Amino acid sequence: MCYSAQIWADYKKFTRQFGAILSVGDFTRIFWERREGSSPKIPKAIEQAFAEPRDEFESQVKRMIDEARDAELARIEERVALQQAKIVEAESALQKRVTKKSQEVIRIAQNRIAAESAKGAKLLRVEAAEDDDRIWPGDYTLVMVQEDGRKVIKPMRYQCRLPGWTLADEKAKPGTYNARRDNLKTVWRKLYGHHHGIMVATHFYESVAQHDYEHRALNEGERPRSIELEFTPQTGEPLYIPVLWFRWADGVEELLSCAAITDVPEPEVAMTGHDRTIINIKPEHVDAWLNPDPTNLAAMDMILEDKRHPYYEHRLAA
């Protein structure tokens, strides 16, 4: 399963490559939610792409990003002040009598202050960092869809909440950031042939068991250990990853979410001990993929079968 990837986080790449336009409403909604106190996990590179808006639509998104940042910084200050007050109270108690309880209160509060300070520093940072464009399940990614005859870029959570699901269903089945190709006409039948998109990535990451990677059995008494591998197409070309997506709503919450389609592993991926590989469709199939006919799933099957097979070089992730 593709549990992490480095994505095209700058929407302008989609504009240059595909002529796609921005879904301003969907972008402003997720930043409005953050401003109001929710915590959608949005890669910093997605935000940084709006640092220099070119028109009023992009300026609107930029304003929401700034307002969301300022609101979160204010909440961080409140949480830090609360922890500082706990430290003062515990230090006062220690002056009267040394107890492990008061020492533990101080230790926990200091750790929480450090964590909140790190969050604040990340919000204020303007320089790009290596993993700013990397996503994990639960993070937001950019997905290109077809809407009213135009290619449109939307922010979607990389973990799909399926039609009819509740939050409890999602928690019980957290693996829906990937959709197995052999399950598309069963588990994913309400989305396959209906809600198609494209996510673009430059690298993907997999977690594998070290003993599988080394092609050996576990030694006596050895516990399984996981290692992380980074895979990159030898051609240097980006991966056009087909996704299924859904706009879930219950009258209170609205969520755009997606899943990347995976298939049997490419030989070089299987050799590392992993049993799946995300599908990488050919550029000439992008338009057809984004305009599915639910009465002709055979055409969609053909696109997935006729996928690209670049050799995926790998290395141990840092």
Rank of each mutant, 00 (worst) to 15 (best):
residue 218 L to K: 06
residue 245 W to D: 07
residue 248 W to D: 01
residue 244 L to T: 00
residue 217 A to I: 04
residue 210 Q to F: 10
residue 238 P to G: 04
residue 218 L to F: 08
residue 232 T to H: 01
residue 196 H to L: 03
residue 188 W to G: 10
residue 206 E to N: 10
residue 207 S to E: 12
residue 209 A to P: 00
residue 204 F to Q: 05
residue 222 E to L: 08
residue 219 N to A: 15
residue 217 A to M: 06
residue 252 V to A: 13
residue 229 L to H: 04
residue 195 H to Y: 12
residue 209 A to W: 14
residue 195 H to M: 07
residue 197 G to M: 06
residue 214 E to Y: 05
residue 208 V to I: 06
residue 203 H to G: 00
residue 204 F to T: 02
residue 227 I to Y: 08
residue 249 A to H: 13
residue 251 G to T: 05
residue 200 V to G: 00
residue 210 Q to A: 15
residue 201 A to N: 06
residue 241 I to H: 01
residue 240 Y to G: 07
residue 216 R to C: 02
residue 217 A to N: 12
residue 190 K to S: 13
residue 240 Y to K: 00
residue 230 E to K: 15
residue 220 E to S: 14
residue 210 Q to G: 04
residue 233 P to G: 11
residue 200 V to D: 04
residue 229 L to D: 12
residue 196 H to V: 01
residue 213 Y to C: 07
residue 244 L to V: 11
residue 251 G to F: 11
residue 214 E to N: 02
residue 231 F to G: 10
residue 239 L to Q: 15
residue 217 A to D: 11
residue 220 E to H: 14
residue 229 L to C: 12
residue 220 E to A: 15
residue 190 K to V: 01
residue 201 A to L: 10
residue 213 Y to H: 15
residue 243 V to G: 08
residue 208 V to T: 03
residue 202 T to D: 15
residue 236 G to F: 09
residue 246 F to G: 07
residue 200 V to M: 13
residue 205 Y to C: 08
residue 237 E to T: 09
residue 212 D to G: 00
residue 244 L to G: 07
residue 233 P to Q: 06
residue 233 P to T: 02
residue 220 E to C: 03
